[in-house]
Write a protein that binds this DNA or RNA. Structure first.
Lengths: 235, 235
DNA sequence: CCGGTTGTGGTCAGTCCGACCGTAACGATG
DNA sequence: CATCGTTACGGTCGGACTGACCACAACCGG
């Protein structure tokens, strides 16, 4: 976009990286994928999986690669969206790195994680003492990722990215409860979900009850809607 | 997807730029700032004001600079927020450029624009025949910017970024009508705005009526709220 | 069989919103 | 000054949606 012909300061370039905040749900709790950056680095420091952008690679491709190379996650059905770009000149002590952060969501069914130094942390531990210390400005990225996820559950069908192909309304409700951190009324949640056009479609199957018993639930699949009208507002 | 220890391609860097979509309101219509990229370039092509990121410069600073250097806009009270980053390898035919797009909003009071090749276009002309042809992938950026602005009017107090310090509820309503492109009921709009805590605060002044006469309106200022509860939903 | 648990359907009151009407306060016109 | 058109302001009414409940259905375990 240069327009002036006068001799300018030499055109400089930046290192561009992608850092991915992957969220999933385990045991009813929202969890975040973190990795130990280097074995030689300080113990107890954790970071988001990140990779440098290659010359012929789109940003989305780099995000996928950061998950596959650093955590062995190749889930093709995972939701992936750009979050925000962090470019403060002093955000990385090793030099100027502009980082495009991504938000990734996977269903809670996929167990195969942790091929190396990756781990899933309960997001409740993050700010607390004893929790992982985050490197660089990754704590801020995580804060933004959580807020994005919480907000988009309200007005999009993003919650279905956390559940497998077939799910019950209780599964979906536990997603909202885990991400928002508040309990929801099962009956009202059900009324809201089924009355929102295109959110979920009922299948003819029924799920088997849990270990404690209880009435079997109907099985649903994702609907075609991406935006919810009206929105499901946080209590 | 290779993670092998074999010698990798040399670490490469990208040109990083900031492109800014500035929106304002003129004559009751939503307008977008565009510039002619180069005198020697094809006639009739327009682009968002953009600048390369300097070594010691934050992305926000580059966005401010793109407005001041290319359009003479230095409004310190302008709202500026990051929109999204566009990094497709083929988005710029001259080479790999990763562009961080920004959304800027200024009150409709500021007239001093157009020091060079800058112009304010009615957003209604953009897709239509006879409107400006946008270079690179800037049409997509503009689409995303408009959708961001329209969506954020719903659940934030962003509309006050389009009006001066002191404004009437009719001014604020015309902002919503211009951005959303739909007429709103004045009475219902008023009820909604004044009942949303922290949106606006009443001053003791009254504005003078327009040329056609009419009862003078009370003058309001911005409130302290950033998010609206409940939201002001599009009709 | 019986109590505990979970899913499903319904009621009821309060809130919010769109559509609408009436009044207040101005400028313009005769 | 009287009237009219225009805009601001305040209120009403019915429908839609929501949260707090309650009741029943369907399963498990003892």
């Amino acid at each position: 976009m240069s327009s002036l012909a006068a001799p300018r300061a030499p055109i400089s370039t930046c290192a561009v990286a992608v850092d991915t905040a992957l969220l999933t749900i385990r045991d009813g709790q929202l969890r975040l994928l973190l990795i130990e950056p280097e074995p030689s680095a300080l113990r107890g420091w954790w970071a988001l999986p990140g990779r440098r952008v290659r010359d012929d690679e789109s940003l989305d491709d780099t995000a996928h690669r950061s998950l596959s190379e650093l955590a062995g996650i190749t889930a093709p059905g995972a939701h992936l969206e750009q979050l925000r770009t962090y470019g403060d000149p002093s955000r990385d002590p090793r030099g100027r790195v502009v980082s495009v952060a991504y938000l990734a969501l996977t269903p809670f069914a996929d167990d195969p994680v942790d091929p190396g130094r990756a781990r899933l942390f309960d997001v409740g531990e993050l700010g607390a003492t004893g929790g992982p210390q985050l490197a660089y400005d990754h704590e801020r990225i995580v804060t933004d990722a959580l807020e994005r996820a919480r907000a988009k559950l309200e007005y999009t069908s993003l919650a279905t990215a956390f559940v497998p192909e077939e799910f019950t309304l209780a599964d979906l409700r536990r997603v909202y409860e885990a991400v928002w951190g508040v309990p929801l009324d099962p009956a009202n949640f059900r009324r809201k979900v089924v009355s929102t056009p295109g959110f979920v479609v009922e299948s003819d199957k029924t799920a088997s009850p849990g270990p404690g018993g209880g009435r079997p639930a109907k099985v649903y699949r994702r609907g075609s809607a991406t935006h919810l009208h009206p929105a499901m507002l946080r209590p």
